[in-house]
Deep mutational scan, measured.
Amino acid sequence: QGEKVEGLQAQALYPWRAKKDNHLNFNKNDVITVLEQQDMWWFGEVQGQKGWFPKSYVKLISG
Protein backbone atom coordinates (compact mmCIF):
# COMPACT_ATOMS: atom_id res chain seq x y z
CA GLN A 1 0.00 0.00 0.00
CA GLY A 2 1.33 3.41 -0.91
CA GLU A 3 1.51 6.55 1.15
CA LYS A 4 -1.24 9.08 0.43
CA VAL A 5 0.12 12.60 0.03
CA GLU A 6 -1.39 16.06 -0.33
CA GLY A 7 -0.11 19.19 -1.99
CA LEU A 8 2.79 17.59 -3.82
CA GLN A 9 3.50 18.63 -7.38
CA ALA A 10 6.02 17.17 -9.76
CA GLN A 11 7.27 18.34 -13.14
CA ALA A 12 7.81 15.81 -15.90
CA LEU A 13 11.44 15.48 -17.00
CA TYR A 14 10.49 13.26 -19.96
CA PRO A 15 7.29 12.29 -21.78
CA TRP A 16 5.63 9.07 -20.53
CA ARG A 17 3.18 6.94 -22.48
CA ALA A 18 0.87 4.57 -20.63
CA LYS A 19 1.76 0.89 -20.87
CA LYS A 20 -1.38 -0.20 -19.00
CA ASP A 21 -4.90 1.15 -18.52
CA ASN A 22 -4.07 2.45 -15.04
CA HIS A 23 -1.01 4.44 -16.17
CA LEU A 24 -0.91 8.21 -16.65
CA ASN A 25 0.15 9.82 -19.94
CA PHE A 26 2.06 13.08 -19.77
CA ASN A 27 4.43 15.25 -21.77
CA LYS A 28 7.77 16.77 -20.80
CA ASN A 29 7.33 19.77 -18.45
CA ASP A 30 3.74 18.86 -17.51
CA VAL A 31 2.99 19.57 -13.85
CA ILE A 32 1.48 16.54 -12.14
CA THR A 33 -0.37 16.57 -8.82
CA VAL A 34 1.01 13.61 -6.84
CA LEU A 35 -1.69 11.76 -4.86
CA GLU A 36 0.11 8.61 -3.69
CA GLN A 37 3.72 7.44 -3.51
CA GLN A 38 5.06 3.90 -3.66
CA ASP A 39 8.69 2.84 -4.02
CA MET A 40 9.22 3.24 -7.75
CA TRP A 41 5.74 4.31 -8.90
CA TRP A 42 3.65 7.34 -8.03
CA PHE A 43 -0.07 7.94 -8.62
CA GLY A 44 -1.04 11.37 -9.85
CA GLU A 45 -3.32 13.58 -11.87
CA VAL A 46 -2.70 15.79 -14.87
CA GLN A 47 -5.28 17.49 -17.11
CA GLY A 48 -8.14 15.62 -15.43
CA GLN A 49 -6.59 12.18 -15.95
CA LYS A 50 -5.32 9.99 -13.09
CA GLY A 51 -2.89 7.09 -13.14
CA TRP A 52 0.44 5.56 -12.16
CA PHE A 53 3.81 6.65 -13.52
CA PRO A 54 7.49 5.97 -12.76
CA LYS A 55 8.86 8.47 -10.26
CA SER A 56 12.15 8.59 -12.18
CA TYR A 57 10.37 10.53 -14.94
CA VAL A 58 9.57 13.51 -12.71
CA LYS A 59 11.11 15.91 -10.19
CA LEU A 60 9.27 17.30 -7.18
CA ILE A 61 8.66 21.05 -7.38
CA SER A 62 6.60 21.51 -4.19
CA GLY A 63 5.77 19.73 -0.97
Rank of each mutant, 00 (worst) to 15 (best):
M40R: 09
P15E: 15
Y14I: 12
E45I: 07
W16F: 11
W41T: 02
R17L: 13
N29S: 09
Q47C: 04
H23M: 07
N25I: 04
L60I: 06
Q37E: 08
K50C: 10
L24D: 00
K20D: 10
L24I: 04
Y14W: 12
P15R: 13
G51I: 04
Q1H: 03
Y14V: 14
G48W: 00
Q9V: 11
D30F: 01
F53A: 00
P15S: 14
V46T: 09
F43A: 02
D39H: 03
W16G: 01
A10R: 01
L13C: 06
L13G: 01
S62A: 15
Y14L: 14
G7F: 15
I61E: 11
Q9N: 14
F43W: 12
K50H: 06
I32E: 00
Y57L: 14
N29V: 01
T33Y: 13
Q49F: 01
Y57G: 02
T33Q: 09
V5P: 11
W16N: 07
W42S: 02
A18H: 12
Q49G: 13
E3H: 11
D21E: 10
L60V: 12
F26Q: 00
Q49V: 12
E6P: 15
N22A: 10
Q9H: 14
W42T: 03
V5D: 15
S56M: 06
M40L: 14
L8D: 07
K55M: 03
V34C: 03
S62L: 11
P54Q: 02
Q1L: 08
I61A: 11
L24Q: 02
D39Y: 07
F26A: 01
S56V: 10
N22E: 11
L13K: 05
G2L: 04
Y57S: 05
D30R: 01
E36K: 14
K59D: 02
N27V: 15
A10G: 07
V31K: 13
Q11S: 12
W16P: 02
A10S: 03
S56D: 10
K28R: 07
Q38K: 08
L35K: 15
N22S: 14
L60Y: 05
K50S: 09
L8Q: 14
D21N: 06
G44R: 00
N22Y: 09
Q1A: 08
K19M: 12
V34M: 01
A10M: 07
K59L: 04
N25C: 12
D21W: 10
L35S: 10
D30M: 06
F53W: 01
E45G: 06
K20V: 10
K59G: 03
W52S: 00
Y14K: 10
Q9C: 10
R17G: 05
G44D: 00
V31D: 03
Q9R: 07
A12R: 00
F53V: 02
H23I: 02
F53K: 00
V5I: 09
E3N: 14
L60M: 12
G63L: 11
W41C: 05
Q38N: 03
F53Y: 02
N22Q: 14
F43R: 05
G2E: 13
Q37I: 05
S56G: 09
Y14E: 14
Y57T: 13
M40W: 03
L60G: 08
V58R: 00
Q47N: 11
W52I: 03
E45W: 06
V46N: 05
N25M: 11
E6W: 09
N22P: 14
M40C: 15
P15M: 15
K20A: 13
G7R: 07
K20Y: 09
K50D: 06
W52P: 01
N22W: 08
W16I: 15
K50R: 15
T33D: 15
G7E: 15
K4C: 15
Q38G: 14
V31T: 13
S62D: 12
K55N: 12
V5T: 07
K59C: 08
F26Y: 01
S56E: 08
G7D: 11
V58A: 08
G51V: 00
K50L: 04
Y14R: 12
Q49A: 11
G51S: 00
E3C: 09
Y57F: 15
Q38C: 12
S62Q: 15
L8P: 04
R17P: 05
V34A: 00
I32F: 03
W41S: 06
Q49H: 14
G2C: 05
W16S: 12
V5L: 04
P15G: 15
Q37F: 11
E45V: 13
D21Y: 10
F53M: 03
N25F: 03
V31R: 13
W41E: 02
Q47S: 08
L60A: 08
T33H: 07
P54C: 01
V31Y: 12
Q11R: 12
E6C: 08
V5S: 10
T33P: 00
Q11W: 10
Q11M: 10
K19C: 12
G51C: 01
K4D: 02
K28F: 03
N25T: 05
N22L: 05
Q9W: 10
A12L: 00
V5H: 02
D39Q: 05
K4A: 08
E36F: 03
W16M: 05
K59Q: 10
K28I: 02
K20E: 12
Q9M: 15
D30E: 11
F26V: 04
K59S: 10
F53Q: 00
G48C: 04
G51A: 04
G63F: 04
V31M: 14
F43I: 02
K20M: 12
V46C: 14
E36W: 10
K59V: 07
L35W: 15
I32Q: 00
V34P: 02
D39S: 09
N25D: 12
G44W: 00
I61S: 05
L13R: 09
V58T: 04
E45S: 12
E45R: 13
W42M: 08
E36R: 09
A12V: 02
V46D: 04
W52Q: 01
V46H: 14
K59H: 07
Q1Y: 03
Q11G: 03
E3P: 05
A10E: 01
L60T: 08
F43K: 07
M40K: 15
I32R: 01
Q37V: 02
K55S: 15
Y57K: 15
F53H: 01
Q11L: 06
P54W: 03
G2Q: 06
K4H: 08
